[in-house]
């Protein structure tokens, strides 16, 4: 019971099939270009040796907050880290100043916000603005890892950013340092958790597991740096400890241990130098294959 094929119908179908396969054929070229460009940019990022330090200042401070710190770092380091400053406006516009010097693999980037007010609501907003700035940086500078430093609320903004926005798999954060960051705001009693601390703990599973975290506290007396209670800084352990690779608490006392002086404190500059900056490569080894261990 062979049925005679209905040729006109069959030709129509074959025509549609050829059209479809032709479309597929036309897509080969663009596909090729896309994947070549994509793999090239991935390779570029993967091979990049750029590893910036990205800093966020605390509330009421601008993108110029760390100028003194950078000068001090450059002086003791005998390296000139480029300084790039970004300001995110309330309408999501990004203003940038400064540039990356050639052959500088460790620039310092400071991200400030036009709205730099205190409060959990503002921190959430600033974290979103920071995510925009980070996207801008990732697009304009090819780096596959970075170091994060946040002073005061800057550390809180970073924490919120890592828990809610940071999901790049081609960029990793190697080390995080928060300086005098009040994880429980001005509450010194740890059994009274603020909404922000509760949220930080709730979403801690999103924190980067490969990062090493330092939380630096300053104290003028035995329980405060004059503004932030030491117990509030200490509350950071409930957020980071056990979730990130290493969590280290450091307490600095003595002169310039007041909250706002912390970024200029010599002890902290030394800490940043020791823990946050990459080790200086020995220049003479460039091009020499044998290295002395």
């Amino acid at each position: 019971m062979r049925i005679k094929p209905n040729w006109p119908r069959r030709w129509r179908s074959l025509f549609i099939l050829i059209l479809g396969l032709g479309l597929l054929g036309l897509l080969i070229g663009p596909s090729y270009h896309w994947t070549q460009a994509n793999v090239r940019s991935m390779t570029g990022r993967h091979d990049s040796r750029l590893s910036p330090i990205i800093m966020i200042p605390g509330s009421s401070a601008t993108q110029n907050r760390f100028d003194a710190l950078v000068t001090q770092l450059n002086k003791t380091d005998k390296r000139k880290h480029s300084l790039i400053k970004l300001t995110v406006k309330t309408d999501d516009q990004i203003q940038a100043s400064g540039s990356l010097r050639p052959r500088d693999n460790e620039p310092i980037i400071v991200v400030g916000f036009q709205n730099n007010h205190d409060g959990y609501g503002n921190i959430k907003k600033q974290a979103r603005w920071f995510s925009l700035a980070f996207k801008y940086l990732a697009k304009n500078y090819q780096f596959n890892n970075f170091k994060a430093i946040g002073h005061s609320n800057g550390g809180l903004i970073y924490t919120y950013f890592f828990e809610h926005y940071f999901d790049r798999d081609d960029i990793s954060v190697k080390r995080i340092m928060t300086i005098g960051s009040p994880y429980n705001f001005s509450e010194s009693n740890l059994s009274h958790k603020t909404q922000m601390l509760a949220d930080f703990i709730k979403y801690r599973h999103n924190l980067p597991t490969q990062a090493t975290v330092y939380s630096v506290a300053g104290t003028e007396n035995y329980d405060s740096d004059g503004l932030v209670p030491a117990r509030s800084v200490e509350a950071g352990k409930y957020v980071y400890q056990g979730q990130v690779k290493h969590y280290t608490e450091i307490t600095v006392t003595g002169t310039k241990a007041q909250h706002s002086s912390l970024p200029q404190n010599e002890q902290i500059v030394t800490l940043i130098q020791t823990y946050m900056l990459d080790k200086q490569p020995k220049r003479k080894l460039a091009g020499v294959s044998a290295t002395v261990n």
Partner: peptide
């Protein structure tokens, strides 16, 4: 091993995922 966009037509997946290898196509 390379990323392939969502909804890539079947016969092109391997081509894109090998960075444009003709044998894959």
């Amino acid at each position: 091993v390379y990323p392939v966009p969502t909804g890539t037509p079947g016969p092109l997946i391997a081509f894109i995922g090998t960075n444009g290898n003709v044998v894959a196509l």
